[in-house]
Amino acid sequence: MKSMFLILAEGEEGGHTPESPLAIEPVEIVLSLIVFALLFLAVRKFVVPNFEKTYAERTQAIEGGLAAAENKQAEADAKLAELEQQLADARHEAARIREEAREQGPRSSPRCGEQAQAESARIVEHGKAQIEAERQQAVTSLRAEVGTLATGLAGRIVGESLEDDARQARVVERFLADLETGPSAPGAN
């Protein structure tokens, strides 16, 4: 490769032999090192600290922001849980009230009026039946008593033998009055 370069170069430039491209040029090496060293030092002193400082601040700001956001989130979660608790309580309360109303409802509902009417009708019926039974019982006992009374009265009439017309008249009248007051008396005698 090198020889070919040299041949070409010699052909072109007629005698002037350029150095091999791989040749070491001390001036260029030294200059490269100086320039790069200066660049390196400047970058290290002026550029990197600024960037790193910015990154650190930014990281801090982002982390602070994240922490704040987390706090806010936790607060919001707590608030939400509280509200849900309240809502659940309210629902529970409403259910309890509805249940109570359902238990108490029949007393105040229209259906309860019908029931009351039926009840009162039943009571009235029961009373009537009882009264009828007592009346029958009274009639039965009266019939028996009327016989006894009539017999006694007749005996007394016969025994006293009309000693006083007036008394006799009163007795008869009283008897008749008694008969008239008892509805079943005529039938009994």
């Binding site: 491209p21 791989l22 040749a23 070491i24 040029e25 001390p26 260029e28 090496i29 030294v30 490269s32 090192l33 790069f36």
Partner: peptide
């Protein structure tokens, strides 16, 4: 220029 590259490689 190879010498420039030599410098950085040497460094």
């Amino acid at each position: 220029r190879s010498s420039m590259a030599y410098a950085l490689a040497g460094l």
